[in-house]
Design a protein around this nucleic acid. Structure first.
Lengths: 337, 337
DNA sequence: CTCAAATGTTTGAGCGCTCAAACCGTAACG
DNA sequence: CGTTACGGTTTGAGCGCTCAAACATTTGAG
């Protein structure tokens, strides 16, 4: 049963009574081969348990048929993008497209990371990279674009519209908009926003989420809304929200830019309520923490985003010079079980 | 600056005025090359920006210099092994040992997974596999051992001591023991255990954690301890613990087999306390959820475990027939910030 | 002064595949 | 009936590396 000498293109060819190249054609360009021959070859392949050698193929085609993605260094934060799902999505979509996913460990700084990426690409270990957690002051996209490395970012090129590249991102504004809709449906009328510092200025993930909240409030014709800001830290958020809730213009609901902020806000709300019903808090990211606290949270369709990244990359492999494309995916509201 | 035709062994050799093989030796077996030659070659390598082609190397050595690991399908559970950290650890340790990490998507069932693994190994995409989340009724270790595939499991071969293999696991008994020590230090004297169904019988992760609790209790000379069981579900755990706390033998602390159980237990404790100080709950896994709730939890040293997996694999690559080895790593108690 | 053993370096072959070009029948056309 | 065209197939070369063996050169012993 076990073929000891692993089958090669040549051994299969001999068995089927054809040439090496014909076997290859059966696998890669079936149309080129006559029906009868094809079947004979397929039978030989099946009988011998032939598996094409990836390295040989890579060497001949000069393509790795693999993409690289960073394995995030342990971030002890409560929320933040949980990448497990993203990795699974990439691997799954990759499998469907003949791409393997290779992981590289996040190094200390961006320079070191760019070195690793170069290495991966130049040694032929990967054809392209998927960038995660991109931010406005990220050096990586510009560098990769400059060095001609194929890549797709999960995250928009905030404020870098000059040097465009392929990207996929979640529509944060839509997410906070959904949160507001939900709260309006619940009868809330004074819906505050808890965002990150610097939210209002430069384009960023934070400003995007804030905008969604603001637009939804405006659209509903509610008065001037309250907004506060805090570093992405539960304790800091708790303090900020405590102050807010103790004040005169205490809202009856708070939309947060992250689940970490939401956790702090929720704690403050519970404390302020003193046994009563706390102010409703909506989070962002739908992490297990939000679920554990019973909070509504905006969920990013990570799996879909991963599939789209692969789609963009395969499309680019086919036409390397096509214009850069960006895709925005809609989030959904996660209600606790 | 940019070398257009990527440098090869031959181009570097020509530049240094030596043969192809000498350049290869400088890289792989520096001792074989005379000092002067070596330096000349290294200079040529540096100047030309040479990077060894991985596929070519793989083809010639018949080694992929890569290991495969499963990308877990989205598990919506609150706790459970957070693999992000494991992936990072593997990638990091792999980089130090010249091993890349390739991801494969968890398929619908074990049979499909074994097929994927076979494929990865037979096509030369990976030399070995790291198995995660192994359980007692897992088919994978036996199959892989049978098919001669090199692998290392993160998880002990519970009840399968007959077919031994390399593994790394966290000492669960030690973990729950630490939890008990901690509670004793806090002055608790009636420390219950909330475990999974079937804890007591067959060897398993659950029975191991339970044993640690029990032994620590016995050692402290406390009376017959209370233990209850629940499926790994927060709602179910909450119900079970509510009943327990309402009864006559309500404990003053509860050690849980997971953070999911701990979440349920904590909810029940808060409810039962009615505003007072709730019964102390200790979790297992130190997930963000436990941190968010302010619970003490047993943390698995995931990063260390990943490094050990790589160590075991590299050792096995060197001596394929050495006896199987298992390593137990000690967890640590995580106190909330 | 000769021969064998180190030491350092090169040569030849081959890993298993794909590309491009060459080849070979047979059908279609003038 | 010769010529062109074309589907189907094979041949030759090469991708960039490592292995083993062959080859120089130096060195130390007899």
């Amino acid at each position: 049963m076990a073929a000891h000498e692993p089958a090669t293109l040549d051994s299969v060819a001999a068995r089927a009574g054809v040439s090496r190249q014909t076997v290859s054609n059966v696998l890669r360009h079936p149309a080129r081969v006559a029906e009868g021959t094809r079947e004979r070859v397929l039978a030989a392949i099946r009988e011998s348990g032939y598996r094409a050698s990836l390295p040989a193929r890579q060497l001949a085609t000069r393509r790795a048929h693999a993409i690289a993605v960073r394995a995030e260094r342990q971030q002890d934060g409560i929320s933040g993008l949980v990448l497990d799902a993203f990795y699974h999505g990439l691997a799954e979509a990759g499998q469907d497209n003949g791409l393997r996913v290779v992981l590289y460990a996040q190094p200390a700084d961006e320079a070191a990371e760019l070195e690793i990426i170069d290495d991966l690409v130049q040694t032929g270990a990967a054809d392209a990279v998927v960038l995660t957690a991109t931010s406005a002051d990220d050096q990586r996209p510009a560098y990769l674009a400059g060095s001609g490395t194929t890549f797709c970012a999960f995250g928009r090129p905030w404020g870098h519209d000059d040097e465009p590249h392929d990207w996929v991102d979640v529509d944060g504004a839509l997410g906070t908009g959904l949160a507001v809709q939900h709260l309006l449906g619940l009868g809330r009328r004074s819906i505050a926003y808890l965002g990150w510092p610097g939210d209002g200025a430069e384009p960023s993930t934070g400003s995007d989420r804030r905008r969604g909240w603001l637009e939804a409030i405006d659209e509903a014709g509610l008065g001037t809304p309250v907004e506060i800001h805090s570093l992405n830290d539960a304790a800091a958020a708790e303090a900020a929200v405590s102050t807010l809730l103790a004040g005169a213009d205490a809202p009856d609901a708070i939309v947060c830019a992250s689940d970490t902020l939401a956790l702090g806000a929720h704690r403050a709300a519970v404390a302020a309520a003193g046994g009563g019903t706390p102010t409703t808090v909506v989070g962002f990211d739908a992490t297990p923490v939000a679920a554990a606290l019973g909070l509504v949270s905006v969920a990013q369709p990570i799996d879909q985003a991963a599939h789209l990244c692969i789609d963009l990359l395969t499309a680019r492999f086919e036409s390397p010079d096509r214009p850069a494309r960006g895709v925005l995916v809609p989030p959904v509201l996660h209600l606790p079980a």
